[in-house]
Design a protein around this nucleic acid. Sequence first.
DNA 1: CTGGGGATGGGGCCC
DNA 2: AGGGCCCCATCCCCA
Length: 264
Amino acid sequence: MPRSFLVRKPSDPRRKPNYSELQDACVEFTFQQPYDQAHLLAAIPPPEVLNPAASLPTLIWDSLLVPQVRPVAWATLPLRESPKAAELTSLSDEDSGKSSQPPSPPSPAPSSFSSTSASSLEAEAFIAFPGLGQLPKQLARLSVAKDPQSRKIFNCKYCNKEYLSLGALKMHIRSHTLPCVCTTCGKAFSRPWLLQGHVRTHTGEKPFSCSHCNRAFADRSNLRAHLQTHSDVKRYQCQACARTFSRMSLLHKHQESGCSGGPR
DNA sequence: CTGGGGATGGGGCCC
DNA sequence: AGGGCCCCATCCCCA
Ligand SMILES: [Zn+2]
Ligand SMILES: [Zn+2]
Ligand SMILES: [Zn+2]
Ligand SMILES: [Zn+2]
């Protein structure tokens, strides 16, 4: 129920961000509310289920600017050197340069769990399941196998996903342990910056503003999506009717609702 | 019903 | 090696 946390304060737009709320990042915390179901589900994502090739959006921008032949389906590959990225960078420069963090105060390093080495995995497990005794420890223990090419494979004990690096696995495990907890509402997140973005929903801080219309956003990605609305040529095109859309989700809606547009 | 905003999850890259 | 940050993908809602 993400929306339930939406606390906008239109009458108090310039309220100073309560950065003290960030201190609670990744501290011990006992879940007392039934956890958001969607959140739990998201914590165990079967990536293969998430529309593998259902969508084949044509990024008009990219196809225009990157003449090389490549599968349209992969047109969403990150192209950091593309003009698109350049524009984003330039506009975000107005705010805070390259950093997505607003003028950030000296953020206290979350120390309670971020000790390095594999022991941090266990620490996080205990944080996430304070009442489960030894179980988390076992769950968090790494299972290292080897694939046919004799590379190490790290399995997540929560969902059995495989990773080729310990770092990747550790990062993933955070999505189970959710060590970063908002003191305002108790919602937990896998990473500090995710919590930080969430805290903005409490503070109303919107560090990313559109240079075209002065509208501000709390999230850079949402600003990016907004920028599309200023563009004549939208990134996502329906292959059947050639209509373009600013968002993948809109293209999906269009296709699922039956594209009536004649072929061309 | 469509478009757009809000919120959030995760992988990847860079320092 | 790990933390931070970036970008993408989605889902949910509302005007
Ligand atoms: Zn897992
Ligand atoms: Zn909160
Ligand atoms: Zn704008
Ligand atoms: Zn169409």
